[in-house]
Every structure is written in structure tokens, then in C-alpha cells.
């Protein structure tokens, strides 16, 4: 687990999006956590089961395993914890004991499934290999979607998975149509094929998180 900032006070623990978007947003997330450290707020970035340095194969993970992993990482900090989730990371903080949840551009499991299938269909068109979207619900073995081997159980769990709305601040890009508690300017780094960073956007997120944590502390 990467740690940032002071040894006392509240700590912000980050959950990256699932699958490919984790690679695209990791540097950005670390930039936000460093910016929070500069504002006197501690941060942590755990590797969840099958993510990052974890030895568990990607196709052996499920939503409960990921949520338990995040909850255990948050509990191990031994301090009041706030989550910072990006995109489908918002589906991972449900089981954790948190003072508050900060969801940046959250999405539902159904949205994520749709995007995975759309990307898979795009590559199927390119390679000329047919792909039947219904097969992801009937397959017994892990399915390859957008370069990831995914357990069919996880795909089923995603069907009705939604972010927890308890003590949650939802923040989106100002370009997004969906409602949010606040909208910030920045670029959707999670869409970029080549990982990129946006230091100004990260600073705006860090400012917003710092102000929100102060409000929560009352």
C-alpha cells in the first residue's frame, strides 16, 4: 500500500477503477494523494486482490473479494478514513467503515459492463472474429473483455451493482451530463489509450476533497 502525508489525522484511501482504467488513472490518483499531502491530509493507495502487485489472477476476483480487500485496507489504517474513488472504483468502497465517500465520476456496474462489451465488439469487428454479447452471461469460463480475463461471477455481480450513496460526495467533470454535488473542469483521463496526467485537475480535486473533509469534521 502506497502511503502519503502526515502520520496523524484523517486519511484518504483511494480505489482505482476496475480493469484497464486502473492503468490510465493510477498516476493521476497518486498526483491527487500527493496534492492532499501538501494540504496536510494523509493518503493511501492499496493494491486490491488481483489489482496492481497482487498475486491473485484477475479472473479469480469477485466484487465481494474486492470490497473486503478495500475494507481491510481501510481498517488497517486505524484512523478516520475517507474514500476517494474514481469511476468504477465507486463500486468497491461499500463494505468499508468510512467517515465519508468521495466519488469522482462514478459509474454503475451496468455502465461498466456496457463499456466492456462495446470495446470487445469493437475489437471483434477489427479482427473479424464474431462476438456474441449474450455469451458473457452464459459462459462458464472467464471471459476476455478489453484485454482482461474476467470471472463470469464478477460480470453477473456487476449487473446490478451501484455506488453506495451514504455520506457520499459525488463529483463529476463539468462536461458530464449526469447530476453531481459539484462539477470540476478537467479531462477524462480514464478514456485515454495512452496513460496521461492532468496536474491542474488533480489540484482542483485535492482542494475540493480538503474542503469537504473540513465540513465533515464540522
Amino acid at each position: 500500500m502506497l502511503r502519503f502525508g502526515p502520520d496523524a489525522g484523517p486519511v484518504v484511501i483511494a480505489a482505482l477503477p476496475l480493469f484497464e482504467e486502473a492503468n490510465r488513472t493510477r498516476a493521476f490518483t497518486v498526483t491527487i494523494l500527493r496534492a492532499l499531502a501538501e494540504r496536510g491530509i494523509a493518503g493511501a493507495l492499496p493494491d486490491l486482490p488481483s489489482q496492481g502487485e497482487s498475486v491473485r489472477p484477475t479472473h479469480e476476483t469477485t466484487l465481494p473479494i474486492l470490497r473486503e480487500g478495500f475494507a481491510a485496507a481501510a481498517a488497517s489504517l486505524g484512523r478516520p478514513a475517507f474514500s476517494l474513488t474514481i469511476r468504477s472504483g465507486a463500486l468497491l468502497d461499500a463494505a468499508a467503515a468510512l467517515t465519508g465517500r468521495y466519488h469522482l465520476s462514478p459509474m454503475t456496474g451496468a455502465d461498466l459492463r456496457r463499456e466492456l462489451v462495446r470495446a470487445r465488439q469493437a475489437s471483434a469487428r477489427e479482427s473479424g472474429q464474431p462476438f456474441d454479447a449474450a455469451s458473457i452471461d452464459t459462459a462458464a469460463d472467464p471471459v476476455e473483455l478489453a484485454g482482461n480475463m474476467i470471472a463470469t461471477q464478477l460480470l453477473r455481480e456487476l449487473t446490478d451493482a451501484v455506488p453506495v450513496a451514504l455520506a457520499t460526495r459525488t463529483v463529476r467533470l463539468e462536461t458530464e451530463a449526469k447530476p453531481a454535488d459539484a462539477k470540476l473542469s478537467g479531462s477524462p483521463l480514464w478514456r485515454r489509450a495512452e496513460p496521461d496526467n492532468d496536474i491542474d485537475f488533480a489540484a482542483r480535486v485535492a482542494d475540493d476533497i480538503a474542503a469537504w473533509i473540513e465540513t465533515c469534521a464540522g
Binding site: 463499456e115 469493437a122 475489437s123 469487428r125 477489427e126 478489453a146
Partner: peptide, 8 residues
Amino acid sequence: LDSMAVAG
């Protein structure tokens, strides 16, 4: 703009 980027 390859086919994956189209999806995005």
C-alpha cells in the same frame, strides 16, 4: 481513432 478508441 482505432476501433477501441471509437468505443471510447
